[in-house]
């Protein structure tokens, strides 16, 4: 009955911290703040201490440009890098329906349950930014 549990956790860590993910952490895409953004928003995750500030330029209901800055773990910075890449040129409506699975697709790495919230924060921040400002302008 006694079965040995081997340390398969090891695999996951290696798979999560792929070289291209680490590279995105060291040199993130779209990092900074737009000079004349249409919308801005700051989101904070007190549990991780992560902070992200989003600035978005909207033209014709589309994301013309987007920047982020802040601090976070490797996974959240890499996720912010890739998601900001992805939504450039996208219609606001389409951005609002992006979900966790889309993120996992973009990232191309397995994420352990406990680290899921790390990659979700940037997308959440973007959505909150769009919703909040969408309401006040309409």
């Amino acid at each position: 009955m006694e079965e040995k549990v081997d340390f398969n956790l090891n695999e996951t860590a290696k798979d999560m911290y792929k070289e291209y993910i680490l590279e995105l952490y060291r040199n993130p895409n779209n990092f900074g703040k737009l000079k004349k953004p249409t919308f801005e928003h700051k989101e904070y995750n007190p549990l991780c201490g992560d902070e992200i500030e989003i600035s978005i330029l909207i033209e014709n209901e589309c994301v013309k440009d987007i920047n982020f800055r802040g601090k976070g773990c490797v996974l959240s910075i890499a996720a912010a890098s890739l998601i900001t890449d992805k939504i450039k040129g996208m219609n606001i409506k389409d951005v609002l329906i992006l979900n966790k699975d889309d993120l996992l697709n973009i990232l191309q790495i397995p994420i352990t349950i406990t680290r899921l919230k790390c990659i979700l924060l940037p997308l959440e921040a973007i959505k909150i930014c769009l919703r909040k400002n969408g309401k006040s302008s309409s």
Binding site: N10, A13, K14, Y17, G49, C73, L75, R115
Partner: peptide, 13 residues
């Protein structure tokens, strides 16, 4: 970030 350090240490058990 401490969470990164923890996950990476986990790689070594």
């Amino acid at each position: 970030h401490p969470h990164d350090v923890v996950t990476l240490l986990d790689e070594d058990g």
